[in-house]
Design a protein around this nucleic acid. Structure first.
Lengths: 269, 269
DNA sequence: TGTATATTGTCCGTTCAACGGACAAACCGA
DNA sequence: TCGGTTTGTCCGTTGAACGGACAATATACA
């Protein structure tokens, strides 16, 4: 799609220097002037670009935000995790996932079930996991900022989900959190299992010191104990969590206009 | 540009339901399935979209932020101001502008010089205005949040611009701010004039109670006094400022995914 | 005032990229 | 096992996009 590609190139170029003339865009992108006119026209029809009357320069409008407004922060971390999980599944044979907090529960955002030889059941993405029983939820709660944890537990108390009722037992919660923290990773509770024959353990993804996601590993219970799995794979799991966190911190630090990308500003000639 | 338009439509549709299949996009947009494939391919080549392996759904990636990351907040308010200034110049014959704070000074972002019969000099957009002498700067300083004002004045003290030296006279600053506040609008100082025969007065644009921009009006000094201009046009100026502010508050309130737009999600059939 | 250069805007004949009908394959619930 | 739904790809046709070319305007300098 030639013209569509060029539109994206021009849109990107406009982001790099807000306020540009046709000729400047031509030089920045290598796209012919005539084509730039056509592209700016269509962008203008959509309201993403306006022409500043006084200076005759083209500017982005606030509407461009709509081109990315649907992209949520939880997506971001999942997005970054994809290639890292891909590598992880080659070292650790068991399927691993990435889950984030949302709406009083953890949700599986990415999964390597399907690429793991030990896949138990199908599609897990989108699966909801209770906070206090799942390994993901426990890992997250144990390492998220204190005010966030308090708020979550407060919310769980008014939940009508059966699993969330234990939120009313502060000593139980405290025991779980303490155990998780002393171990450095969380285990799932027997009362919640996606599949009867499997067990799960999880590590938190610590961005700037606090959990923003969990990285659960699911294995077949008859094959090994949690301790054995941990001994074999915990360092790999934690390295992956660290790598995801590093990428996140790195991305957040940047202003966002940078280079190292797939997108050619200049057209291949 | 047919294919480019369709790409934008699909991109927007993806924002409205993050995670979509080809068929869903087909239904949402009315674009043929084959075309959706082509579009998603090009979006994928640019890294804006990825396919979630487990669910076979297409998702936006964090890269989409780059399509709007160049759009700054100061642009936003200028952007919104354009049509409002356009209407204002029809009521008030004198040229009006919109200026925002940046880099220790006010900058003219939009202007109706050129549409006003009384245009004095050409292109004013991009013009830098000193904080303590220009009407724009005074209006802004008088109504911005206290910590911001203190920080700005602190910065001005270490500026090497001659105009900014008065930042060292706190009683002078205080007198100006008090006068501006009691009036409700600011006047420019004789020591700074873009054009010798003109004078300027300005009102702040108060978003959530604090100045985010200024709305200056420039008139020919021999034609009227500041008081006369104020009497005739102040209510119109302030109404325009209010309208800009309202739009800003409104936009900030929204999550950003809304409807009332120029962009057809469904193709005209 | 005239000449040279840079920039903007539009026309229009050519061509190839985009189009969608059509078909095959996979999937799913009954 | 069988319809219905969804996914993916092929390929002949066509018109949208392409860019060369020219006109118009602005700016600089002699």
């Amino acid at each position: 799609m030639r013209s569509a590609e060029r539109l994206l190139i021009v849109l990107r170029a406009l982001n790099l220097r807000n306020g540009a003339t046709v000729l400047e865009l031509n030089r920045d992108t290598g796209i012919s002037r005539q084509a730039i006119y056509r592209i700016l026209d269509t962008l203008r029809n959509f309201g993403y670009v306006r022409r500043q009357e006084a200076t005759d320069r083209f500017h982005l409008t606030h509407m461009v935000r709509r081109l990315s407004s649907g992209f949520k922060d939880e997506e971001w971390i999942a997005d970054i995790a994809v290639p890292i999980l891909g590598r992880l599944v080659q070292e650790v044979v068991w399927p691993t996932e990435l889950s984030t907090f949302s709406d009083n529960a953890m949700y599986i955002r990415e999964s390597t079930r399907g690429r793991s030889p030990f896949t138990i059941d199908r599609v897990a993405v989108g699966q909801r996991l209770p906070m206090l029983q799942s390994a993901s939820g426990r890992a997250y709660l144990s390492y998220c900022p204190d005010p966030e944890r308090e708020a979550i537990i407060e919310n769980l108390k008014s939940s009508d989900d059966d699993f969330d009722q234990v939120a009313h037992k502060p000593d139980y919660i405290e025991r779980i959190l303490a155990a998780t923290r002393s171990r450095g990773w969380a285990v799932g509770d027997d009362s919640f299992r996606l599949h009867p024959k499997t067990e799960t353990l999880a590590v938190p993804v610590l961005v700037n010191g606090y959990a923003r996601a969990s990285l659960p590993l699911t294995y077949i219970a008859s094959a090994a104990t949690a301790e054995q799995i941990a001994e074999r794979h915990m360092s790999q799991l934690q390295a992956a969590a660290k790598e995801i966190a590093d990428r996140m911190e790195e991305m957040q630090a940047r202003t966002d206009d940078d280079d190292d990308d797939l997108i050619p500003i200049r057209e291949a000639s």
